[in-house]
Amino acid sequence: MSEAGRLLQEIFNELSLKIAALAHERRREGLLPIAKAKMQLLGQMSLLANDKVSMILSLTQTGDMDALLSMDEAVKSELKVILRRQGLVYDEDSYLIWIPPQAKFEKLFEGDYLLVESIDPESALVSKAVKAPEKNKLLIRQAIASDEFPTLVDRILENGGRLEDFL
C-alpha cells in the first residue's frame, strides 16, 4: 500500500471510531441516530491513494483534501480535526470540482458508520486536464505518454479540453 493509502486508512479508522463514539452518545441521550457518513475522494489524493496509478504517474500534493462530503456537521468537524493533525486541510471548495461524465466511484473504505469512495483515476485526470491544464501539464503529459488510460485523450477532447495545452 502506498504511503498516501496508509495515511488515508489511518484517517478513516480514526474517523470511524469518532463517529461510533458520537453515535453511542446520541443513543444514550435518546437523540436521532447518526446517519452513515459518506466521503467521495477527488483530485490528487484520489490518484495518490491508488497503488496502480501511483506506480505510473509522478504525483505531488499540497495538504488539501478534495472530497465531496455527505455527513453530519459534528462528523465533519471531527474529520477536520483529524486532518489537521496529519498536516492536511479539507478544501471547502471541493464542491466546485467538475466531475466529468462517465466518472465512476470505487469503494476505498467501508465501516459501520463510514463509506469512502474514490473517483476513478482516468476521470480525475480528465477533470484536471479540462479545468486546470496549466497546473497539471506535466501530469497529463505523463498520463497520455503512459498509454495506460485508453480513453483519456478522447474524453479530454469530448469535454472541451485541448491537446495543445499540453505542449
Binding site: 503529459r141 497520455i144 505518454a145 485523450v153 491537446l163 495543445e164 505542449l167
Partner: peptide, 13 residues
C-alpha cells in the same frame, strides 16, 4: 490528433 499526441509524448520524455 496523432501529431499532437506524438509531440506530447516527446515532451513527456
Amino acid at each position: 490528433r496523432e501529431t499532437l499526441i506524438k509531440q506530447i509524448k516527446d515532451q513527456a520524455k
